[in-house]
Simulated scan of single mutants.
Amino acid sequence: MNLHGLRLFYKVAKAGSVTVAAEQLKISQPAITAQIKKFEKENGVTLFLPQGRGICLSEIGKQLLKEADAIFKIEDRMETLIDNYKQGKNGTLKIAGNYLSTNFLIPIWVTKLKQENKDINIEINTLNTENAIKQLMSYEVDVAILGSGAAKYTDKINSTKIMDDNLWFVASSSHKYANQKVSLNDIMLEPFIMREKGSYARRLLESICYTNIIKLPKIALEFNGLHEALMASTSGYGVTFCSSIAAKEFIDIGKLARIYVDNINLKNEIVICVRKGEETQNLVKEFMSVIKA
């Protein structure tokens, strides 16, 4: 079916006049009439009945108008859908993040994004840095929020710094070193409660020991989640080396306390990552704007 001819018929029928339709469409009346006659001939129907002034739809013309109305309303909705998608007002945003970002940062940002864009869907996956980058590169997610470990993938991604996260030694507020200043040697004699091998804080702790030629501390308890490690630390046993963002809420309510270790002042960059060499999607841009705000 010639949709151009159908559209011209629809416009004339809705306007009630070829003249009005021509003005709306900014094309000549003869051009409209010729296209409608071509459409009638191609389909073997008569859409308009002759009468003095104005137009009069035939029976098939009335039926076709009803169906055409449904078609072009769907078209209008599709155009709106596409426009909204291009502006980041609908669609699905898939986010990957490490444990820290998905538990302490992303929930705040996506809540704000959803409030401003009620028609979007948001999916969040908690992954380690390596798997988050893999999903980003395989188009399983649109954006990743990660720590300093993302720096090793600069050949594949573009990353933008969001904030610095300090790394602290913390323990129960009843620990002997709570709120005290101690040497690196002394703190490394304490049992540690840490996340699994390969986690950023764990690798950084090992790096501190290697750099200062100090024996690695005993990892007395190991958890796959940072929150779990912090909860275990509140018992009074062991020291945790971790994100200040994660530890702060425990410190604020008095369950944990900082331990100030001589000459140790380390930071972890929190970055937002997208695929290198691609134009950033509008929905990702909206998300980035929320974060910056």
Results as ranks from 00 to 15, higher is better:
residue 177 Y to A: 09
residue 23 E to R: 15
residue 158 N to L: 09
residue 125 N to M: 11
residue 168 W to I: 04
residue 70 A to D: 11
residue 119 D to R: 06
residue 31 A to R: 02
residue 240 T to K: 05
residue 267 K to T: 15
residue 71 I to F: 11
residue 148 S to A: 04
residue 53 R to V: 12
residue 182 V to W: 07
residue 158 N to H: 03
residue 99 Y to C: 15
residue 131 N to T: 00
residue 245 I to G: 08
residue 190 E to Q: 12
residue 216 L to I: 01
residue 165 D to V: 04
residue 117 N to P: 03
residue 150 A to V: 05
residue 114 K to Y: 01
residue 108 I to W: 01
residue 199 S to H: 02
residue 191 P to N: 09
residue 96 A to R: 12
residue 137 M to C: 11
residue 11 K to C: 14
residue 65 L to I: 12
residue 37 K to P: 02
residue 159 S to D: 02
residue 117 N to E: 08
residue 281 Q to W: 01
residue 292 K to A: 08
residue 137 M to F: 02
residue 263 N to L: 02
residue 64 L to A: 00
residue 38 K to M: 13
residue 18 V to F: 14
residue 163 M to Q: 00
residue 293 A to Q: 15
residue 290 V to Q: 08
residue 92 T to Q: 06
residue 171 A to Y: 03
residue 80 T to R: 08
residue 179 N to E: 12
residue 25 L to A: 06
residue 237 Y to N: 15
residue 172 S to H: 12
residue 24 Q to S: 07
residue 242 C to S: 13
residue 72 F to W: 00
residue 219 I to Y: 08
residue 165 D to Y: 07
residue 78 M to D: 07
residue 157 I to L: 10
residue 210 Y to S: 15
residue 240 T to L: 11
residue 6 L to P: 08
residue 246 A to Y: 02
residue 262 D to I: 04
residue 214 I to S: 14
residue 179 N to I: 07
residue 22 A to H: 01
residue 42 E to K: 10
residue 170 V to F: 03
residue 286 E to N: 14
residue 213 I to Q: 15
residue 138 S to D: 13
residue 34 A to F: 09
residue 248 K to P: 06
residue 26 K to P: 10
residue 168 W to D: 07
residue 261 V to W: 10
residue 13 A to Q: 10
residue 207 S to L: 07
residue 275 R to M: 11
residue 40 E to K: 01
residue 54 G to S: 09
residue 268 N to G: 09
residue 102 T to L: 12
residue 112 K to P: 07
residue 250 F to S: 06
residue 155 D to C: 02
residue 260 Y to H: 13
residue 170 V to W: 09
residue 206 E to A: 09
residue 268 N to R: 08
residue 237 Y to M: 14
residue 20 V to R: 15
residue 203 R to Q: 15
residue 248 K to H: 07
residue 120 I to W: 08
residue 155 D to M: 11
residue 103 N to A: 00
residue 212 N to I: 02
residue 278 E to A: 04
residue 8 L to K: 03
residue 234 T to P: 08
residue 185 N to I: 11
residue 150 A to I: 09
residue 40 E to W: 07
residue 130 E to C: 01
residue 140 E to K: 00
residue 197 K to G: 09
residue 5 G to E: 03
residue 255 K to F: 14
residue 235 S to P: 02
residue 63 Q to K: 15
residue 264 I to T: 04
residue 191 P to W: 12
residue 175 H to T: 09
residue 239 V to N: 01
residue 260 Y to I: 06
residue 77 R to Q: 00
residue 125 N to C: 13
residue 206 E to T: 14
residue 247 A to E: 09
residue 14 K to D: 10
residue 186 D to S: 05
residue 116 E to M: 02
residue 65 L to C: 00
residue 257 A to Q: 10
residue 162 I to P: 04
residue 83 D to H: 04
residue 227 H to P: 10
residue 205 L to S: 05
residue 196 E to D: 15
residue 286 E to V: 13
residue 129 T to Y: 02
residue 202 R to Y: 08
residue 116 E to P: 00
residue 220 A to G: 06
residue 159 S to E: 01
residue 18 V to W: 13
